[in-house]
């Protein structure tokens, strides 16, 4: 029963034209990055992970996702969360779902599942296009890590898979909080604006050393640590911290959304 609801939710999301246009846009990002690095030529070096992109096509998916996590992926998650509840409320279809003999908690889990499935699809799509574009434009010979070691292709793909899971989890956590906002309004734009403003404000707050007591509470603080996937051997503590931090947001977001949905009149 619930699997059928899960399936229909994802099919419903995939049928929206803007979902497809959005996915297409996301797929363009790694192509543009690979093309840009290829155009810049063999010159390598520089700060951060961009330094090891030259001749190292398997790093493109990681680089793309790492850059997109700051703005693009939260935006996409907020769009899906906005469509999930506020969008349905706007079209009047949420009322039908709320009066149906289906538990509201279950309704929330269906929405959360749709968000997770679509996030995983989007992130995986970007990674796969990144692997292809990176290999095509920059060539590949295993995967050079930030530590200067070279991993075999198989192990490189495993790192990419790990990164896909980590980034998807961050996206779902942001989406869960956006779902909580989505449950309170019938204007999808409000949800998107609230989410994006929060993410940007968090990132700005993260820049001030004077506010360092606040930093451990901001989900954006966990983003940079995820790049540890590209070190060898992988240090797990920062990755673990970022994931736990996102997990807390997921709990809070889901809890608030459930509280609102259960108490909603109809």
């Amino acid at each position: 029963m619930i699997t059928r609801q899960f399936g229909s939710e994802v099919r419903w999301m995939l049928r929206r034209p803007r979902t497809l246009i959005g996915l297409l846009g996301l797929a363009l990002v790694p192509i543009v990055i690979s093309f840009g690095v290829w155009l810049a030529g063999e010159e390598s070096g520089g700060p951060g992970i961009a330094a090891i992109l030259g001749g190292n096509g398997l790093v493109v998916p990681i680089f793309t996702l790492f850059m997109s996590l700051n703005l693009l992926l939260p935006l996409v998650a907020s769009i899906w969360a906005a469509d999930g509840l506020a969008g349905e409320a706007q079209h009047g279809t949420l009322r039908g779902l709320l009066v149906a003999p289906v538990s509201r908690v279950r309704l929330l889990f269906v929405k959360l599942f749709g968000l997770t499935a679509m996030s995983l699809l989007a992130v995986t799509l970007m990674a796969v296009v990144g692997i292809i574009a990176g290999t095509a434009f920059l060539g590949t010979d295993g995967m050079t890590t930030l530590s200067g070691t070279t991993l075999g292709t198989g192990e490189g793909l495993l790192r990419i898979a790990l990164f896909i899971v980590l980034v998807t989890f961050q996206m779902v956590s942001i989406g869960a909080v956006a779902l909580a906002v989505s449950a309170t309004t019938e204007h999808p734009l409000v949800v998107q604006a609230a989410t994006m403003v929060s993410i940007i404000v968090f990132q700005v707050l993260g820049q001030f050393p004077a506010l360092d007591w606040l930093h451990p509470f901001l989900i954006t603080t966990g983003f940079p640590g995820l790049i540890d996937v590209m070190r060898d051997p992988v240090p797990l503590d920062q990755i673990w911290d970022s994931t736990l931090l996102a997990g807390c947001y997921l709990l809070i977001g889901t809890g608030l959304a459930a509280l609102r949905l259960i108490t909603k009149d109809n």
Binding site: L250, G255, L256
Partner: peptide, 9 residues
Amino acid sequence: AAAAGVVAG
């Protein structure tokens, strides 16, 4: 349960 989730988070 929902409130507990928020508190736990």
